[in-house]
Design a protein around this nucleic acid. Structure first.
Length: 565
RNA sequence: CGGGGCGUAGCGCAGCCUGGUUAGCGCGCCUGCUUUGGGAGCAGGAGGUCCCCGGUUCGAAUCCGGGCGCCCCGACCA
C-alpha cells in the first residue's frame, strides 16, 4: 500500500483527552478516531491490527476444535427473562424498542442466544462436546468509559461457549481454552498471566482471568512470588496471620465522641492509628441484615462476603436499618452487646489487642475491647481485600499487588444457563441432563491496546511482527527525485510480489516528518531510500525495536526481507 | 450518581477575571518557488454558529441562568 493512497493520518500533538500510552498512541498514529465517549472509528491502520489479532484468535481456536458462528447483536427481551438476567444486568444493558413495541437488547454477551441455539439443535450426548464461538461487537452501557478502547461502550469481543455431557469432559474443554488463550496472547507478543478470578454476574464455579501486567491496568492482582499463586484482588484469599497477642484486661470504658463517625475522624480523636478500630458494617444480604467486622485499616471484600453468605444481592444497609439493628445512627455501631443479628468477623479483628469500636449509642464509642472476652464465639472468616504483604493462601509467603489489564476470561459455568434455557441432552441411559457449560471471552480491541501498553517507547509504537499492520515500511526520502523514486517503486513492487505486507511512504514530506511518523506507527522493518543510497547501491534496513542499521545491496534487499521476517 | 476540570479553525492552546473595532498564536491544510538523512525556508491564501438556548447590556467569546458534550477521581463494572 502506498501512503498517499490510504488514510494514515498522524498527529504531532498528544490528544488532550488521552491519559494512557495506548490511547495516546492509537490516536496519534492514526489507528482510530473518537466519535463520542466510548465509541471509536477504526482507521485502516487500526483495523489491520484488529484483524491480525482476530486471525490469531481464529487460528488457535479452530486448532483447539472450536467452531465459528455468528450470532445477532439484537436479542429479544424474553430470552433474557428466561435466564433471569433481564433485571440483573439492567445496569449495563443498552435497550431499544421497535415500532411495534418489542423490546430488544444490544447484546452485552451471548450466553442466552447460544444456549437457546444449543437447546434447539443439540439433543444427544453423542453431539457433545461442542465449542461454539464468534467474533462480534458487544455493547455495554459502561458507567464510565475510559482509556480509549480499554473500556468502551462498543467493542469487539471473541466469545465462546462449550457444552459437555459430563464434568470430566467439561474440565477438558475448559483446559483446552485455557491453553489456547495462553498461546493466543503469546502469539500477540503479550506477557499475559492467568489469575484466579471472581465469577461475578456470570455465575458458575471457577474462572481465570488473563491479565497483562501494566501500570495503567484497571485491575489489581495479587501475586505470590514464591509458589506462583495469582488472583484478582476481588477473589484473592488471604492466609490469616498468626501473631501471638496479649489482649487487654482493662475494663471496657464508654467515651463521649460527639459527631465522630469515620475511621479517619476516630483516629484523629483518639490520636491513634486505624488498626486499633473494629470497623462495624451493617450489610443487607438478600434483604437480611448482617453485621460484618473488620479492622479499621482494612476493607471488606464484598465478593468474598457475597460468596460466604451465598447472597445474590448484597449492599450496605440504609440508615434506617442501621438504626433498627444497632439502636444508633450511622457511625456508632459496634459488636459488643449487639444481639439479634448474625455477626461475622474478618480474621484481622482477632489480632486487635485493645480495640475501639462503636457503643451502639449516638456519639459514644467504647475502648479497651478484648474480642475474646467481650464477643466470645464469633465466626471468623477471610473477608478482607488483599493488600501488599498479605500472606499467600497456598504457602504463607507475603504477596505482592500488581496492576493488570484483563484481556481474557474463562469460566466454568456449570448448568446455570443450560437449566434456565432448557439446553438438555439425552444421556446413555435415555435420561435428560442439562449440558455442562463453559464460557470464554477475549476482548479483541482491548488486546490491541494492551499490546501497545507493552510495546512502545518515547517515539511511538513498536509492533510485534505478528500483529503489525505492515511488516515493512519503505521510506523514500525524496520520492520526487527520479532515481530515488524508481528504486523505491521497484523495491515496493518486488516485496508486494513476494507477498510481503509493505507500506511505501511516497509522500513528498520532509525527511524528519517521515522518520518521526515511521517511528510513531511502529512498522517492524524500515527501509530508507535516499540519494545516498541510490549512489552507493546499498539500502539501509532498520528494525523498529533496535538501533542497529543493516546495509544491503539494493538487489538483495527483497530476498533478505523474505528470509528475515 | 457524588467531586473536580474543560468546551474558541482539523490538532494543541491564548484571550474571559476587569464586556468595546475585522477573535489571536503554534502546528496542520491550499498555491507558487526553493528545499529534502530526524518534525524545512520564503511569499501568498483558505478555514470560526467562540458548544447550544435564554437573559443582562447601547454592546457578550467574556457577566448571569438553564441545557448538552468531553475528560479526570470516586462509586460502579464479565
Amino acid at each position: 500500500m502506498k501512503w498517499t493512497e490510504t488514510l494514515i493520518v498522524t498527529q504531532r500533538d498528544n490528544p488532550q483527552e488521552a491519559e494512557i500510552p495506548s490511547h495516546r498512541l492509537m490516536i496519534r498514529a492514526g489507528m482510530m478516531r473518537k466519535l463520542a465517549s466510548g465509541l471509536y472509528t477504526y482507521l485502516p491502520l487500526g483495523l489491520k491490527v484488529l484483524r491480525k489479532v482476530e486471525a490469531i484468535v481464529r487460528d488457535e481456536l479452530n486448532r483447539a476444535g472450536a467452531i465459528e458462528i455468528l450470532m445477532p447483536i439484537l436479542q429479544p427481551r424474553n430470552l433474557w427473562e428466561r435466564s433471569g438476567r433481564w433485571d440483573l444486568m439492567d445496569d449495563i444493558m443498552l435497550k431499544v424498542k421497535t415500532h411495534q413495541g418489542q423490546e430488544l437488547v444490544l447484546g452485552p454477551t451471548h450466553e442466552e442466544v447460544v444456549t437457546d441455539l444449543v437447546s434447539r439443535e443439540i439433543s444427544s450426548y453423542k453431539q457433545l462436546p461442542r465449542n461454539l464461538y464468534q467474533i462480534n461487537t458487544k455493547f455495554r452501557d459502561e458507567i464510565r468509559p475510559r482509556f480509549g478502547v480499554m473500556r468502551s461502550r462498543e467493542f469487539i469481543m471473541k466469545d465462546g461457549y462449550s457444552f459437555d455431557a459430563d464434568d470430566e469432559s467439561a474440565d477438558r474443554s475448559y483446559q483446552l481454552m485455557y491453553d489456547a488463550y495462553t498461546r493466543i496472547f503469546a502469539r500477540c507478543g503479550l506477557t499475559a498471566m492467568p489469575v484466579e478470578a471472581d465469577t461475578g454476574v456470570m455465575g458458575g464455579n471457577q474462572s481465570h482471568e488473563f491479565m497483562v501486567p501494566a501500570e495503567t491496568g484497571e485491575d489489581a492482582i495479587v501475586v505470590c512470588p514464591d509458589c506462583g499463586y495469582a488472583a484478582n484482588v476481588e477473589q484473592a484469599e488471604i492466609k490469616p496471620a498468626h501473631t501471638t497477642v496479649t489482649r487487654t484486661e482493662d475494663a471496657i470504658e464508654e467515651i463521649d465522641t460527639p459527631e465522630v463517625r469515620t475511621v479517619e475522624e476516630l483516629a484523629e480523636f483518639f490520636q491513634t492509628t486505624p488498626d486499633r478500630f473494629i470497623k462495624t458494617l451493617i450489610y443487607t444480604a438478600d434483604s437480611q441484615p448482617v453485621t460484618v467486622l473488620i479492622r479499621g485499616d482494612r476493607e471488606i471484600n464484598e465478593s468474598k462476603l457475597r460468596r460466604l453468605l451465598g447472597a445474590a444481592e448484597l449492599e450496605l444497609a440504609d440508615e434506617e436499618t442501621i438504626r433498627r439493628v444497632t439502636g444508633a445512627p450511622l457511625g456508632f455501631a459496634g459488636p459488643v452487646g449487639l444481639s439479634g443479628i448474625r455477626i461475622i468477623a474478618d480474621y484481622t479483628v482477632v489480632l486487635i489487642e485493645s480495640g475501639i469500636t462503636g457503643a451502639n449509642r449516638q456519639d459514644r464509642h467504647i475502648i479497651n475491647v478484648n474480642m475474646e472476652r467481650d464477643c466470645p464465639g464469633l465466626e471468623y472468616h477471610d473477608l478482607a481485600v488483599a493488600v501488599d504483604g498479605d500472606l499467600c493462601p497456598g504457602c504463607g509467603t507475603p504477596m505482592k499487588i500488581r496492576r493488570g489489564i484483563e484481556v481474557g476470561h474463562v469460566f466454568k459455568l456449570g448448568t446455570k444457563y443450560s437449566e434456565s434455557m432448557g439446553a438438555m441432552v439425552k444421556d446413555e441411559s435415555g435420561g435428560e441432563k442439562p449440558a455442562i457449560m463453559g464460557c470464554y471471552g477475549i476482548g479483541i480491541s482491548r488486546t490491541v491496546a494492551a499490546i501497545i501498553e507493552q510495546h512502545y517507547d518515547e517515539k511511538g509504537i513498536i509492533w510485534p511482527a505478528s500483529v503489525a499492520p505492515y511488516q515493512v515500511l519503505i521510506l523514500a526520502i525524496n520520492p520526487g527525485d527520479p532515481a530515488v523514486g524508481s528504486v523505491a517503486e521497484e523495491l515496493y513492487a518486488a516485496l508486494a510480489e513476494r507477498g510481503i505486507e509493505v507500506l511505501y511512504d511516497d509522500r513528498s514530506a520532509s525527511a524528519g516528518v517521515k522518520f518521526n511518523d515511521s517511528d510513531l506507527i511502529g512498522i517492524p522493518l524500515r527501509i530508507t531510500i535516499g540519494k545516498r543510497a541510490v549512489k552507493s547501491g546499498e539500502l539501509e534496513v532498520k528494525r523498529r525495536d533496535s538501533d542497529e542499521v543493516i546495509k544491503l545491496p539494493t538487489a538483495e534487499v527483497a530476498d533478505w526481507i523474505v528470509s528475515n521476517l
